[in-house]
Structures are given as C-alpha cells and as structure tokens.
Simulated scan of single mutants.
Amino acid sequence: MRYLAVLFWSIVLIQMVNFVLNSLQGGGTLNLITPLIVAVIFTIFVILFDLAIKPTTKHPDKQQ
C-alpha cells in the first residue's frame, strides 16, 4: 500500500513540475506520457532502495 502512495504522489508532483516547466518555456503542448514514465521509474527506485536498506537477518541474541 505504501508503494501505491509513493506512485500516486510521484505522479502528482512530477506532473506539477512538468506543468510549471512547460509554462516557463512559453506554454505549448503539454506532454503527459514522459512524466508518467519518470514517476514509475522513481517509484521503482524507491522500492529498490527500501529493499536494500531493510535488515535481512535477525540477531540471535535479541528476544522478540
């Protein structure tokens, strides 16, 4: 569920950045596909980063 939230917010924020940068360049046709691809790539990066920093082994001296 948290990865869906990351995907949602990355799509929203990258689309906003796309709109602002397009407006600064004088308008024109708004590209919607490229920011979606960037948002998916960013979400995959976040997932891989999350998997990389999780501890994989439990210490035998700690009781849970």
Rank of each mutant, 00 (worst) to 15 (best):
M1E: 13
R2P: 12
Y3W: 09
Y3N: 11
A5M: 00
V6I: 07
V6K: 01
W9M: 03
W9R: 02
W9S: 00
V12P: 01
V12H: 05
L13M: 10
L13I: 12
I14W: 04
Q15K: 13
M16N: 11
M16H: 10
M16C: 14
N18Y: 09
F19E: 03
F19R: 07
F19G: 08
F19K: 10
F19P: 04
F19N: 11
F19W: 08
L21R: 07
L21P: 03
L21C: 08
L21V: 10
L24K: 00
Q25M: 12
G27P: 02
G28K: 01
G28E: 00
T29R: 08
T29G: 07
N31G: 03
N31W: 03
N31T: 08
N31C: 00
L32G: 10
L32N: 13
T34D: 14
P35Q: 01
P35T: 04
P35I: 00
L36E: 06
L36Q: 06
L36N: 03
I37H: 02
V38P: 05
A39S: 07
I41M: 00
I41H: 06
F42H: 06
T43Q: 02
T43V: 00
T43K: 05
F45I: 08
F45M: 10
V46K: 01
I47S: 10
F49S: 13
F49Y: 14
F49A: 15
D50K: 06
D50F: 00
L51I: 07
L51M: 14
A52N: 11
I53N: 04
I53Y: 00
P55Q: 13
P55M: 10
T56C: 11
T56R: 15
T56I: 12
T57D: 08
K58L: 11
K58N: 12
H59L: 12
P60H: 11
P60I: 05
Q63D: 13
Q63W: 14
Q63E: 15
Q63C: 06
Q64S: 15
Q64I: 15
Q64A: 15
Q64M: 14
